[in-house]
Design a binder for these strands. Structure first.
Lengths: 214, 214
DNA sequence: TCACCCTCCGTTGTACACAACACGCGACTC
DNA sequence: GAGTCGCGTGTTGTGTACAACGGAGGGTGA
């Protein structure tokens, strides 16, 4: 057992992940008591985590009913996507990092993983890799505020893609993702964070278009 | 007594206001029990409010010590200001509102109030009017996500100005603020939200420069 | 005189009991 | 038979006692 803060973050992170990977699909009723028991704590600290998830719009607590995982709809989230695109682009101009060998190695790692995914594509593994690659994208700017806001907005919309993938062509999506990583790798190797940011923005935009059509 | 949610927001809003108006200067130790008594509740719901303020960086709770109002430093906040400027500008291009007579009337109201402030300037009244005018600026975009993020960042930095005003020329600052409102009024009357957003961005930028010199 | 320790006090963190509330089901009434 | 009331059950919200912890102050020994 660590100190309270890190333990809280662990629980928060785990629940957020379950919600965004649809382990808890929209409409699921979470029981405070059950979750508290699972994480080996009591309702009080767990409620603090749920309160944060509620502030971020991932769950909704209703007195006398339960804590319910919210539903997400692409049309309602268009505003969020608009902002996410702008923030993605800003990552290239607001305090961009100096690219080191470590950065290049990281993007190569993602390239390898995306190729492996192409050979054995599953929706869940794809979503997880996408999430990890998003976090890598955050590290391209040193602006902490930008990172925080981007992350918050990302998790607000992360479920939409996974909810729609059954109606889309998984192999084609993986292919597009692979190419995004390749393009990003080219930009990073050339030390061009600005280009990497624009690539990211473009792919968010295209992804929204594909999602709306499905 | 209203329902839990609105009551919680009332307490949150009040505490945030006290912190940002320096009723609780940085370093102040807040007592959960005292505050709970003041708002006629118990520690439990009050702690939820403090938890949110802690997530937003306005206070810090330390086990065994207390809940302490954080200090803010302009140099640490430069990243936040950078992002705030970008968001201010985006308010003009991301889902800008259609300007109605109501909007024009609102900005006229601020103009009048700023003129009144010029006649009897106090730092606190200035800070309050500035805050109100900021909230007006938020209404210029229909993008809810943009509004939320802008507000969050604004309150992160709001105290810096008030902390430095004693070392600056209050009358001159009021004058600049009056002109900002006048310029905004011109833009709004012409139906040009984009220009209003750029004016706002410019004034944030200039304000940061003045603050760093003081 | 200084360094160390120990105890006391106030604070935040946690656990738990109870209140407030929503929903469903069954009985009762018309 | 339909509508309505009331109660039981399960949930979140609140209050409160206690545990965990940090710091200050005084005492003690070298």
């Amino acid at each position: 057992m660590q100190d309270a803060t890190s333990n809280r973050f662990r629980v928060y992170s785990e629940l957020r992940s379950r919600i965004c990977l649809l382990d808890y699909p929209p409409g699921t009723r979470l029981s405070e008591e059950t979750l508290a028991a699972e994480f080996g704590t009591s309702r009080t600290p767990l409620r603090r985590v749920l309160a944060r998830l509620e502030d971020e719009g991932l769950v909704q607590s209703i007195h006398g009913v339960g804590t319910i995982v919210t539903d997400v709809d692409i049309e309602e989230m268009l505003h969020v996507y608009d902002l996410r695109m702008e923030l993605a682009q800003l990552a290239g101009s607001l305090s961009p990092i100096d690219i080191t060998d470590q950065t290049i190695q990281a993007v190569r790692h993602f390239h390898n993983q995306s190729e492996a995914l192409k050979r054995d594509p599953t929706a869940r593994a794809f979503a997880q890799l996408n999430m990890a690659f998003f976090h890598f994208g955050l590290t391209l700017s040193n602006n902490v505020a930008l990172r925080d806001m981007s992350e918050r907005l990302y998790y607000k919309t992360a479920r939409i893609w996974l909810k729609s993938i059954s109606k889309m062509d998984l192999a084609a999506e993986v292919d597009i993702f692979c190419r995004e990583i390749e393009e990003t790798q080219n930009a990073i190797v050339n030390g061009d964070t600005s280009a990497a940011a624009l690539i990211r923005r473009a792919h968010i935009s295209m992804c929204v278009h594909r999602l709306r059509k499905s």
